[in-house]
């Protein structure tokens, strides 16, 4: 009986020893949780960075002139997970706005109300509309699960309604369980 008690105590200590206390992690680092079934914060960064780089090196964007006016159009989340699309969009529009490469139309209601009462104020017409879709595909083989998240973005020229740039970035994750880090 005493033997069982000491074993029980030993096991309890071992289980406690296996637990990981919460710590702060660099959100841009390599020790983040990798989830198989959902889009992680680093997936938005990865897809957003790839999209941004593809867009700025495209001939259409490069020759669009200084600071073209862009409006964000319809961006659809067709995945099973509900998330705020600004997690993706801010990775693309943020660096462009901060570098002065685009002028982004903001439909903030407070700003709109203030503009309405400002004589002579007018919103510039957008030259381009950024639109997109996020999709997912799941597959499994035995215990191994795989999920692919497909990020699609396109830049539409307003005066012609023609797509002048589009890009698809797929983030695929595979495993039997969620993990920490890469």
């Amino acid at each position: 009986m005493n033997m069982n008690k000491s074993l029980l105590l030993g096991l309890t200590a071992f289980v406690v020893g296996c637990e990981t206390p919460a710590t702060y992690k660099d959100p841009e680092g390599r020790e983040l949780v990798v989830s198989i079934g959902k889009v992680d914060i680093q997936d938005f960064a990865n897809a957003g960075n790839a999209m941004l780089q593809e867009m700025v090196k495209s001939p259409a964007f490069d020759s669009a002139g200084a600071s073209p006016v862009i409006q964000v159009g319809q961006i659809t989340n067709d995945t099973a997970t509900n998330f705020d699309l600004s997690l993706l969009l801010s990775k693309i529009t943020g660096p462009l706005v901060n570098a002065g490469r685009i002028r982004l139309i903001d439909s903030d209601p407070v700003a709109s109300a203030a503009r309405a009462s400002t004589p002579g104020a007018a919103v510039p017409l957008p030259q381009y509309v950024l639109k997109g879709k996020i999709l997912e595909d799941r597959a499994n083989a035995g215990r191994t699960k795989q999920s692919s998240f497909v990020f699609q973005l396109a830049l539409v020229e307003v005066k012609t309604s023609l797509q002048v740039w589009q890009k698809e970035k797929i983030v695929t994750k595979q495993g039997t369980t969620n993990a920490v880090g890469f």
């Binding site: 841009e28 680093q42 990865n46 960075n49 780089q53 700025v56 660096p95 570098a99 890469f182």
Partner: peptide, 25 residues
């Protein structure tokens, strides 16, 4: 300026990959 985070790129044996970076400023 910079690209935050890490972009994972699998490389098969012998494979060549090209990383392109375009400045915004």
């Amino acid at each position: 300026e910079g690209q935050s985070g890490w972009s994972p790129t699998p490389l098969e044996p012998g494979q060549i990959t090209t990383v392109t970076a375009t400045a915004l400023r």
